[in-house]
Design a binder for these strands. Structure first.
Lengths: 383, 383
DNA sequence: ACGTCAAATCAAAGCGCTTTGGATGCGTTA
DNA sequence: TAACGCATCCAAAGCGCTTTGATTTGACGT
């Protein structure tokens, strides 16, 4: 462009051999310009600066073989020195990829975002993303137009894939996303969805079955369950495990001992307190989160009871960074599985799906460890 | 890549002219695929569908006045029905905006992400973003090339602004971002930075001064401080407030009573335990986070001490959703300020900056409330 | 000196949107 | 009737990149 204009202006016509001359000149000019204006660094500027075409520079930067090694080095060095990095939007527009993974959170259940479990999970995922050069895009949706929002995400095209958080028993998102053809992985399964989809989950059912059996073995018969919100699939599975274990000993689950809510500290405190004040209180509590377990401990302490002696407690432990379950000796007996590791793995799996679209959809089931801490002991009037 | 693999598999070698063939094939395939899956909905398709030009459709959708109301309605309805929403990358490329705000987190201090305080803050910010149609883009950086990363963010242009998390005493990011001309707002101030920049902060100094004075008034003289990491500016300010209050009563701060680390539960437990075992233990503990305060409570309880009688505790309370400080009656006496509200406000301010680039840089100082709970009482041997 | 071939480079056409600078049609005014 | 203003609409030129199809270059054999 500039070259042509100059030619015109000088009244010259093109002759072979001029190329080099012009390159020299324009190189000088662009150095001048960038010094003067604080030049906007884009591919055009950079290529003019180097006296190369945009094609060659682009290829050099993206590691294509059609560029000589000498040229590539020159380009790379120059790009580094001039702090060039390609405009993500333009690159995305040209390639059709956006190098970002979306995490969509329903606004009503915005508590999800505020849930430390979510923080640890996304931190894990973030590690995988950043290692692969991906960003993480978080958006809050109003619940009334969730479907529309997913469709919009697809056609806005600002993510290459999605993580589905907190799947419900029958989660419409899974069918929707499958039909949209947007790669996604669900953190947790949806029991009533029959089609194939990618997921990573913990064996919640078995974890809670084992925990319950452990308490039964200690002689406990009145075991309370402080579960998460039971329209969420993981909570449903946990309850199944609990019930299965009871059934194994011929015990009926008792509604008064089964509670369900968001797993806050207050929740653990409130429900434990309520159950302790009722007739025939539980001798053991099975808790869905270490945060609620802390509330349980507070309630016991307020009631003058000793955890592990008067009342036993087992909690599910996501191995949260800020709320770790003691140091050498665990505070709580717990079924533990690192949610951070789950995040790391999920992200890895999703990125693989995006890289190799042909392969079958991956699934992964993690097992939780049962670790013994100080919060459990034989049932009080059990000899 | 795929082409090469295919070639290899077929036992063919590359010959000029093959390129065209492959392109034809892949084009055909993609036409077939899109017919199968359903038309790709872009502005072109939509405008053809409506028998209007892309210009008119674009204007109709974006609320420009040059379109008749009748046409606009027709366009809007059609867009809704066909689930059209403009490609974000293309729109961004054309407008120069990306409708996303970046949150950059240094990878080493990845604990930031995992910190429930961060979760609540971003949840608040997220509300503001989503109301304004913005997304939130989170990226982890390796610390060694943080500067380069910020430069890249600028020229990649995938965010319209940034939130700076956890500013240090003299934070180089502030100068860097200012010079890059990328709008940003710092959550917290950086004491040793003299230039103007946008920030939102809590009056940490005054909050801790008031809390300390409250304990002094109750007769406490040996007051421990469990602070956050003191290279972070907020922690430094908190210590200043603490020292100032002590100085007001002619007291010297005692190094053995001043601890500093990441504000985990374990940290609160470990340090409290250590101090209780030492000679002349503190009669009160001032704690930087409710999470650590829970650890403090556990340590006291393990030592057979009653919180609020044997040892008083005041904590800073970010009013975390999952860790709220009791219900009617607060558990802990605390200086409270909602970090979620801080997030909401920060985002609002940053979006305003982006909308009106001319205005002076906004700053906002929030005051923390001192709320009285059950964790404080007169110093033991004080009559 | 000339043709050949591979290696190295380039110009230009997209990607899907916004926006500029007209065009078109039509009722009003001189 | 011509000139004008106004309300609608449009063609085409970007935005900054990748990728296609073509061209230039230089080494080599004859």
């Amino acid at each position: 462009m500039i070259t042509n204009a100059l030619m015109l202006h000088c009244g010259l016509s093109w002759r072979p051999g001029f190329g080099l001359l012009f390159r020299r000149v324009s190189r000088l000019w662009s150095v001048y310009a960038s010094a003067l204006i604080g030049q906007i660094m884009n591919l055009k500027t950079l290529s003019e600066h180097l006296g190369l075409s945009q094609t060659t520079v682009s290829r050099a930067l993206n590691g294509y073989p059609e560029v000589s090694e000498k040229t590539r080095q020159r380009v790379l060095e120059s790009a580094r020195k001039l702090n060039y990095s390609p405009n993500a939007r333009a690159k995305g527009l040209a390639t059709g990829k956006s190098m970002a993974i979306g995490h969509v959170i329903a606004r009503s259940s915005r508590h999800e975002m505020v849930n430390p479990v979510f923080g640890d999970y996304t931190a894990g995922a973030g590690e995988s993303y950043s290692a692969a050069g991906y960003d993480m895009l978080i958006s809050l949706v109003d619940d009334d137009n969730e479907e529309q929002f997913y469709r919009a995400i697809k056609s806005k095209g600002n993510v290459d894939g999605l993580i589905v958080h907190g799947p419900k028993m029958e989660d419409t998102r899974i069918d929707l996303l499958s039909s949209l053809g947007l790669p996604f992985l669900s953190h947790g399964r949806a029991s009533n969805v029959t089609r194939n989809y990618a997921w990573l989950d913990v064996n919640n059912c078995r974890a809670f079955q084992r925990a319950t059996e452990f308490l039964l073995d200690l002689g406990h018969r009145r075991i309370a369950l402080l579960n998460g919100l039971e329209f969420l699939d993981f909570a449903h599975r946990r309850r199944q495990g609990y019930i299965k274990a009871l059934a194994g000993r011929g015990l009926e689950p008792e509604p008064a001992l089964m509670r369900s809510d968001e797993m806050t500290e207050i929740y653990g405190y409130r429900e434990t307190r309520a159950m302790l004040e009722a007739d025939d209180p539980p001798t053991a509590v099975l808790c869905s989160s270490i945060i609620s377990a802390i509330g349980v401990r507070r309630a016991l302490s307020d009631a003058g009871l000793t955890m592990g002696r008067d009342v036993s407690v087992i909690t599910y432990d996501d191995d949260l960074s800020y709320m770790s379950n003691g140091q050498e000796v665990p505070i709580f007996t717990a079924t533990r599985s690192s949610v951070r590791e789950a995040g790391r793995l999920s992200a890895q799996m999703l990125l693989d799906m995006i890289r190799n679209p042909g392969l079958p959809l991956p699934t992964h089931l993690m097992e939780a460890d049962l670790i013994i801490g100080q919060s459990t002991g034989p049932a009080p009037n059990h000899t």
